[in-house]
Amino acid sequence: MTDIALHIENLSFAYGATKALDRVGFNVRCGECTILLGPNGAGKSTLFSLITRLYDAREGRIELCGFDIKRQSLKALANLGVVFQQTTLDPDLSVTQNLRYHAALHGMGRKAADLRIREELERLHMFERRGEKVRQLNGGHKRRVEIARALLHNPRLLLLDEPTVGLDVPSRQAIVEHVHDLVKQQNLAVLWATHLIDEIAGQDSLIVLHKGQVKAEGKLADVLQATGCSDAGQVFQKFTQGGGQP
């Protein structure tokens, strides 16, 4: 089985005459956390919409665990867990009811689902709050539940679209640490879209996206060496100057 969880090749996309992505290509490997860094409007959300098949790309190719997203979309999507930028939990349902709903969408039976819900919630220290309505949780806890939900069906690739936006520092740190632990312990592939430099760890891979194009790609250390920058912040500035806020 290939260790490439996500393969993107020559991907372009436009909204009418406005080009959002221009010949984008990169790989995300299992056991690696890949940070997709880009200012607002860089094309991150469009890229995520294409990977999750909200839209179909007319040019280029996306493979998830070896399955073409257009031709074998169901097999491809079965390997994918997603945390979107906006909270997508139902506030009127309890934590467990939300997670059971997701498990049902992935074809899991009640017994297997409850077992996995327990495992994931315990790992995130949220099991005691399983009966509470999502409306009663704070932003950080909602995010934890969303991460638990994204992992319920044991995906090989986890997509995180700016999951820490609006959270306080301790909540952000907890999520960053948890995701990096998952990568190590479960050989999970993670693609993490962000514009927050401090979420990047030393061992991460980095992709800098700006105006729909990949400006830099590789292990953080390799990118720093190739660009002559001292940290990820400088890399970001170098490639996105005048193109948005970090």
Binding site: K75, T88, L89, L105
Partner: peptide, 14 residues
């Protein structure tokens, strides 16, 4: 608008 529709569309069903 709130994104939960996207969650539904991402699940591996036609």
């Amino acid at each position: 608008e709130m994104g939960s529709m996207r969650m539904l569309m991402v699940c591996p069903l036609p």
